[in-house]
Design a protein around this nucleic acid. Structure first.
Lengths: 324, 324
DNA sequence: CCTCCAAAGTTACAAATGTATTTTTGTTTG
DNA sequence: CAAACAAAAATACATTTGTAACTTTGGAGG
């Protein structure tokens, strides 16, 4: 986006959101059409230029939060309010997911905010995915010039907004901190290639930083045809099926695990470039779960013992409780 | 407001602002009418429960900011975008004021946010008024448990939302910090009474804290029949007129000054309980100006030399520049 | 037990918003 | 220079929102 366009968008957002002018008046003052103002405003919201925050710590779901915290021996559990979509027919499935992503993103961003304001210089590790991306979008108005953000995994080849590179970049830009990422593909072609990639000096350095993270935000993926991993073409249909045969129920950062949270014995797990469970075990890990379809994966990962804190949307939380 | 009402409001805000449900859907889920949801949402907005922030570095008005900063030898000057109300007929005068208050409040809150995140424990002094009140409302999502907020002036008798007591209380509650205030009236009945009040131990202590403030937020009042000071009944019509005869053009914290920023020689100035200009001179002072009608008062106060930083709305800034 | 009062519900309508379609404008490119 | 294209304007319309007038409900107090 050009500089002048961005400036126009910011002015529109001020007039509309802060000034309380309506779109018509805003359009007149900016000398553009109302339709364009409308478009710019929705763009401003999506891009996280304007962010809406709710100033309340305990929003609800208390009993569920406590239950999950105790069951999985977590330091904390934050659940967004349940939207109650189980029986609702008024909201499309994709829209529901989007809502869950945003809700968890808001909650996680709030948590991250308080972490950043607690200590001058922290190192924050992050995974990838749409939930993590939303967290970056919802994180507005925080200055943390001494914070360091590092991706704990390799990058996608396709350049999408939830690529580790983009995530770290967005976090750094928004807070004024520094960003680092692993300049290697997420999944190597062979086990031998992985060793070569891992031995690169810059990679060794980056992994060192990652291991020193004060806290790590990760999310989980399901193992279905519609999972992000499949849609991004990171794994083939055949690979997905062979993973399931090994008992895998989900992944985090490309590490596949079974319903008990054990890394499965599979070729892919030996080609992934990311911090493994043994390494994650040594640092505080916060898991972000958005969407009920991730409940099974979440359950496995929570059982593994690598997770210390959970941020989850209300509906998924209820499903997770029901899973027993 | 009752606890259950507040909880309902928070849930409504989540469903609507975070979840992106419309008011109809929100109402259905909460089991109330849409009209009520609508009312709760607007209440949530003006109470500062939900706050909308714009992730802006440079919003505009650069030339004016620079001009003012140089003219009055300020450390910084922040101007909100100008809404261009001079010739506009589409917005009522009271609404315009409200917009200016909110805009300056947002900008000031952002500035305060960055101050709070810069250092662990700071002491922040504050004045009173609607602009300052807005600053407290717009300050959301900041934790600063070690911050101290102190009113640098006595309190109003009428308990309004912009009473120093309320201001300090709101700041403390929102950030989790501590609040202090001067437990004495704003303007004493006689000079002798003032001495008695000032000698109270708790007052001496509070003033000591106030003097140690790392930074101080103040605003200015005009000397007209419609000024807040008059409307709150703090001064009588006769007093106002005698003040004007002494050359007073405005006040800050109940201290009246002339167009050159000198404290006027008037009985009232000897009865006010607040940090005086000589004391303010020793600490960094940030002046908040919202509304063009305050330009004259702002000009006087800026000339006094007590002000180090200025946050002003775009329209007032332009008027101030025009005043020369 | 009844009356009064306030809060929420109901209804209705005007205003604002989101979105799709067509037209205009300005820029790029052969 | 003209064709091709993209961006924005103009237009139109369905949905959502804000608001006011009126009705119901559920206590509080006489």
């Amino acid at each position: 986006m050009s500089d002048t366009e961005e400036a126009l968008m910011v002015r529109a957002a001020w007039f509309y959101y802060v000034g309380g002018l309506n779109q018509e008046q805003t359009a007149t003052r900016l000398g553009v059409t109302r339709a364009r103002v409308n478009k710019m405003l929705s763009e401003a919201r999506d891009s996280g230029l304007v962010s809406i925050s709710i100033d309340h710590q305990r929003v609800g779901m208390l009993p569920v939060e406590d239950l999950l915290r105790e069951r999985f021996r977590l330091d904390f559990c934050i659940s967004t309010p349940a939207f109650g979509f189980k029986e609702a027919k008024d909201v499309e499935i994709e829209v529901r997911k989007q809502i869950a992503f945003r809700a968890v993103g808001v909650a996680a961003a709030n948590h991250l905010k308080s972490l950043l304001s607690e200590s001058e210089s922290v190192t924050i590790g992050t995974g990838w995915g749409r939930t993590i991306e939303q967290m970056t979008l919802q994180l507005a108005g925080v200055r943390a010039p001494h914070a360091r953000f590092i991706s704990i995994m390799g990058s996608l080849t396709a350049n999408s907004a939830y690529n580790p590179f983009e995530v770290v970049h967005a976090l750094a830009r928004r807070t004024g901190g520094e960003g680092f990422f692993l300049p290697v593909p997420f999944i190597a072609d062979t086990i031998e290639d992985r060793m070569v990639l891992l031995s690169q000096r810059s990679v060794v350095k980056a992994l060192e930083i990652a291991r020193s993270a004060a806290v790590c935000f990760i999310s989980a993926g399901e193992l279905t045809e519609t999972s992000l991993l499949r849609r991004q073409g990171m794994i083939s249909r055949a690979e997905l099926e062979s993973l399931r045969r090994c008992g895998a129920v989900g992944d985090t950062n490309g590490i596949f695990f079974d319903s008990e949270g054990k890394q499965v014995d599979h070729d892919l797990n030996r080609r992934t470039i990311a911090l493994g469970f043994d390494e994650l075990m040594k640092i505080p890990v916060i898991l972000l779960i958005a969407g009920q379809e991730k409940s099974a994966a979440a359950r496995g990962l929570l059982k593994s013992g690598v997770v210390n804190g959970l941020v989850i949307d209300g509906d998924a939380a209820e499903t997770l409780v029901a899973l027993g």
